[in-house]
Write a protein that binds this DNA or RNA. Structure first.
Length: 802
DNA sequence: GTGTAATGCTATTGG
DNA sequence: AGCATTACAC
């Protein structure tokens, strides 16, 4: 493999790898070997003499970065690969910001707030300002602030922008600007950055500190960005700035797989790329090596329904494989049972391993039915996403102590732990402290630390309690430099009282919480014992940078980096808790490492979003129902619907051998039974790729065997649980008289030339018919919507005239 | 201030 | 259905 890596590439891939200098854009269809090209390109850069310290590779997940690093290591050797700058935007720039934080007025040990932390801070601000959190919902306030930051609009600019003010007034949220300013101010005072700040502040750094800009421009002579279609404006500007000196920028993406616009990602970045770098080389990877012909064909027919897309012809030389099976079940639980049974069967018949299976869904809430069914079948599984380990209450509690020891001013952590375990400092006391802090525009910690100087009407007992708390935190802080991560972590767990509190709780939940704390402490121990590796890494970095003669100009620019290393050296010999906490907020479950083969050999459950970039032999896409997938939030806007369709495209193209689609006619939502109709996406797949035997007459007979059931159906308007939201009510009701009530039989005699009506496409004329009723399809030309292929079973056509 | 019972809200998607 | 916040009794 070592020398022949170029031979493993097809001609286009090879060109993309060998073209090293200048801007490059790789448009890669699903399964076209994008990761391989990226990996080999980096390896090739290094083989060509580029120093790994000068290569920056930005990936979508930390896991992707780690895997890519491992693959590169196999080509160029581990020692070299280790020195690559590789990770997510957030983790790479968090690392850079730590060494540059003072330039921005932040402490180097700033805290990273996750979404929960951010929402809590917003809630606090709303309460202090007497604003109604029903109008200013913390989640949507945060989303609005997030969108502003991702478009590089600072709080002050936001508050002073007439157009934005008008927008917020129209949305009945005139105070948004004030909230944003308060939020930014509080984060700053707490020495905290939220996820968006990591990118926003990197932009500030590069904009306002020319020396820093120059330094990183010369440090990152070669930049690669994976999943470029899912980058936002803030990320775009960072990359543009960093690449401005050398213009060695390579981006890889697929517009058809752009699924993160809700997070500010914009396809505009791909379009801008051609404008910014007119001299660029473009490579299109169109041959799919992952999936069967049926899967590729089906995916292509789905995405063809989108108007907005770059022209691409994804094809494969793989075998046809099996048809995509569509399965109808009558409840979410039976959908789970079907999937679990099917996995069990395939495992037996085809000797497949658990890890070859994935169950993909639109929303996390759908995992439960799947989990229960898999557990009944004794099939080991693993859920990705959802509540991560680090977001569990007990873990966040303990981490809050760690965070506060490292950064005393972190107010979210402070509020979390000041009275947990209970130590008699209640809400009224905290409120008084908050008022004092706001009055003096200082952090809560500064008030607490000097609580006896603030006359805010606390009685002497409370005063002592607050003072004791401050003393405790200070004692933890003092140990940061004298104790290693594990010793201090353990010490805090004991002396904070958390361990005792959880140990006292003998309920199963309490026991489980205690176990989770133990697991965290074990992780800490492992981290601490690896200190040699960390030290070596530091040493490696020193040696490598010293031995490699830099050009004189860039050597001058590297003075700051030297400082970094001296400070790292001071931390020896112990691995500090500070080091452990560096980017823990950025870790997700998908980033777990050190797993045994047994850990890995499990069926994967995840949202389709989380499945991006992954591949599996057998893929189940469940919950293919209107209002769920596509999500009801996407139905009013073509742009949103097209993103849902791309999501479906991503889901299908995860599979190598087999795709199974399922939908259920009923489903529990918020504890209420809701009736569902099959997703429009099913009928968007050309029928030649589908196996509809499991949705056929059998299912219809079932309906007819139990006419009482459908009667109850129509008589139950109260299954809509929130009539306040009129929009939803109408839609759910509409869903109730779905396929089950539709008389497919009336279309038995549908023929070419007939006029038909379709609920979405309107009037049309049948051009051709294919297949045997009821598993047949009709090609219809609609006056308004053009030519469509429709599955008779799903399309709900009505015959207008012969 | 603390602990438990009742209430009410939630479920797109995520670093 | 499950979780978080709130209300209320101690």
């Amino acid at each position: 493999m070592n020398k022949n890596y170029l031979d493993e590439l097809n001609p286009v891939q090879r060109k993309a790898v060998e073209c090293i200098e200048g801007p490059e854009m790789i448009i890669a269809g699903a399964g076209a070997g994008k990761t391989r090209v990226l990996t080999y390109r980096i390896a090739h850069l290094m083989k060509s003499g580029v120093d790994p310290f000068n290569i920056l590779a930005l990936t979508f997940t930390n896991k992707a970065a780690r895997e890519m690093k491992e693959r590169i290591a196999r080509i160029v050797g581990e020692g070299e690969a280790k020195n690559l700058w590789m990770g997510t935007f957030h983790s790479v720039f968090a690392r850079i910001l730590r060494s540059e934080a003072e330039k921005l007025g932040y402490p180097a040990n700033f805290t990273i707030y996750d979404t929960d932390d951010s929402k809590n801070l917003i809630k606090a601000i709303l309460k202090e300002q007497g604003l109604d959190d029903k109008i200013y919902k913390p989640g949507s306030v945060l989303a609005r602030i997030s969108a502003a930051k991702n478009n590089l609009i600072a709080a002050s600019a936001y508050a002073n922008n007439a157009q934005i003010q008008e927008e917020d007034r129209m949305a009945a949220k005139p105070k948004m600007g004030i909230i944003y300013q308060a939020y930014a101010n509080r984060c700053f005072k707490a020495g905290a950055m939220d996820f968006d700040d990591l990118l926003f502040n990197t932009n500030i750094l590069l904009r306002d500190h020319p020396k820093a800009l120059l330094k990183y421009q010369h440090k990152f002579k070669y930049i690669l960005v994976d999943e470029y279609q899912d980058t936002n404006f803030s990320q775009y500007v960072i990359v543009k700035q960093l690449a401005a000196a050398y213009r060695n920028i390579c981006v890889v993406g697929d517009d058809a797989q752009s699924i993160y616009s809700f997070r500010g990602a914009t396809i505009q970045n791909i379009l801008n790329f051609e404008k910014d770098y007119p001299e660029l080389n473009v490579f299109k990877l169109e041959q799919n090596y992952r999936s069967t012909k049926n899967i590729v064909g089906a995916a292509n027919t789905v995405i063809a329904n989108n108007k907005d897309q770059l022209q691409k012809n994804v094809f494969t030389d793989n075998t046809s494989g099996e048809l995509i099976k569509v399965v109808k079940t009558e409840s979410d639980n039976s959908e789970g049972n079907f999937v679990a049974n099917s996995i069990f069967e395939i495992k037996m018949n085809e000797q497949a391993a658990n890890k070859e299976f994935a169950i993909l869904y639109r929303t996390n809430a759908q995992s439960r039915a799947m989990e229960e069914a898999l557990r009944r079948q004794n099939i080991p599984y693993r859920i990705y996403g959802g509540l991560s380990f680090y977001q569990r209450k007990e873990i966040k509690d303990l981490l809050s102590y760690y965070r506060m020891a490292i950064n005393n001013h972190d107010e979210i952590s402070l509020k979390r732990i000041i009275n947990y375990p209970a130590r008699g400092i209640g809400d009224t006391t905290i409120d008084k402290i908050v008022v004092a802090a706001n009055d003096h525009n200082i952090s809560l910690w500064t008030v607490i630390e000097n609580i006896k100087d603030f006359e805010i009407g606390l009685n002497s007992g409370t005063l002592t309690k607050v003072d004791d708390f401050a003393t405790m935190i200070k004692s933890f802080s003092a140990m940061l430099t004298t104790h290693n991560a594990y010793d201090l972590g353990q010490y805090i767990a004991v002396h904070s009282g958390i361990l005792r509190d959880l140990y006292a709780d003998k309920t199963p939940e309490g026991v489980s919480r205690h176990e989770n704390i133990q697991e965290l402490l074990n992780g800490l121990k492992e981290f601490t014992e690896n200190e040699i590796t960390v030290e070596e890494e530091v040493k490696n970095e020193e040696e490598a940078e010293n031995k490699e003669p830099e050009s004189t100009s860039s050597q001058l620019l590297f003075t700051d980096t030297d400082e970094e290393q001296t400070s790292a050296e001071n931390l020896k010999p112990a691995v500090t808790l500070n080091a452990f906490m560096q980017d823990i907020a950025l870790l997700t479950d998908a980033d777990k490492k050190n797993e045994t083969e047994e850990d890995k050999n499990k069926v994967s459950l995840m949202t389709i979003h989380a499945s991006k970039g992954l591949e599996f032999g057998y893929v189940y896409i469940v919950g293919l129902e209107e209002n769920l997938f596509p999500s009801q939030m996407s139905l009013t806007d073509r742009v949103d619907l097209e993103e849902e369709r791309r999501l479906f495209y991503v889901a299908i193209t995860r599979a190598e051998k087999r795709v199974t689609l399922s939908y259920s006619t009923t489903r529990y939502k918020w504890g209420n039974l809701v009736y569902c109709e099959p997703s429009r996406f099913i009928e968007e797949i050309n029928a030649q790729y589908l196996d509809l035997s499991a949705v056929g007459n059998n299912a219809m007979f079932e309906e007819e065997d139990y006419p009482s059931k459908s009667k109850t159906t129509s008589k139950k308007p109260e299954f809509v649980q929130r009539p306040i939201m009129g929009k939803k009510l109408v839609k759910v009701n509409a869903a109730a008289k779905g396929t089950s009530d539709f008389d497919t039989e009336s279309l038995r005699n549908l023929q070419v030339g007939m006029q038909v009506n379709h609920e979405r496409f309107g009037f049309g004329k049948v051009i051709s018919m294919d297949g045997v009723f009821p598993n047949n399809k009709a090609t219809v030309f609609f006056e308004g919507a053009g030519q469509k292929q429709l599955l008779i079973k799903f399309a709900k056509l009505t015959i207008v005239t012969n």
